[in-house]
Design a protein around this nucleic acid. Structure first.
Lengths: 160, 160
DNA sequence: CCTGTCAGTAGGAAAATCCAACTTAGTGAG
DNA sequence: CTCACTAAGTTGGATTTTCCTACTGACAGG
């Protein structure tokens, strides 16, 4: 094996870790409560108290999550009064761009984690039907399954 | 406000927490390293050591994650030798059904978290183009944006 | 004056994660 | 035979996060 190099070839390269966009994304929104806060903002909550209530997140944790989302440009925090200064939260376009991620997480739960009573929340498409999301290829328009995909790495080093 | 009920209407229902499929899904795969383990399995790693190497997860944590994924039926663990007994891991169909979630997480990172060198990993669709995933409505076939969706809750209690 | 609201902070307990070392039953090299 | 190495963990303890409860400040309503 090349990667577990013996002493002659130098120190073992401890990072065979894949540099991948999934990992990068999870660095931003992968901590507990982050995606649920984003969900709440998408569903219309814009005040701290409401997000606390609807997610169940500890207040201090939610504070740090919202600050992190703000730092990454997914959320804007704007004062809506002073004395005392209060803020509301709003998703930016970048924040809204997470919608497909949440849609797929929701769909997975809808499909595999519900009882006979059905999904607690559903989304209705403008076509009138409840949304069953499918991934299509933007280039050819066809529906995509994992069998239609081939992994392409640039071959160098640890990326993959 | 109805939800913050005064004493007359009974004790404050501490759980205004939304029962939603996103939260349920995150209960299963939302902990650190879970989705990265699934990613590795999708990319072809099937041995414990390899998943450790490629994700960078602590071995003990990865063990508990794989056990949890197995308990939920996303992963199968099968012995491939005894003396000493060794196992390999494989995604079940249920595990593979997470592919759209990972696809969207990857796409978000590809779109927003890459430098000029581009994404570290890309997926090629059978049509020949690199995959740019879009969500379509299974019912009408149209591409979906968040503006085309209406939230439907059953109205009762805390679900939403 | 008393209570309640909102958006946090503070302090300390509890839980999760991380890390390095160890185990077990082998295989291959010298 | 001995040494080094492998795979799939397990163990103990340090570190880091998360959680929980209570508190703050500045106001509004009764």
């Amino acid at each position: 094996m090349i990667s577990n190099s013996p002493a002659i070839l130098g120190p073992v390269t401890t990072t065979d870790v894949r540099d991948c966009s999934i990992a990068r994304t999870l660095e931003v929104v992968g901590e507990k409560w982050s995606l649920l806060a984003v969900r709440e903002l998408m569903l219309g909550s814009d005040r701290f108290e409401e997000i606390v209530r609807r997610t169940g997140a500890p207040r201090d944790i939610l504070t740090t999550r919202l600050r992190k989302l703000e730092a990454h440009g997914l959320v804007e925090r704007e004062p809506y009064q002073d004395r005392p200064v209060r803020h509301r939260y709003r998703l930016t376009a970048l924040g809204w761009s997470l919608a497909p991620v949440l849609t797929m997480l929701r769909d997975w739960g809808d499909t595999h984690l519900v009882g006979p009573e059905g999904p607690p929340v559903t989304l209705r498409h403008t076509c009138g039907e409840l949304l069953r999301p499918r991934i299509h290829c933007a280039a050819c328009g066809e529906a995509v399954t994992s069998r239609d995909l081939e992994v392409v790495t640039d071959g160098t080093s640890d990326r993959g």
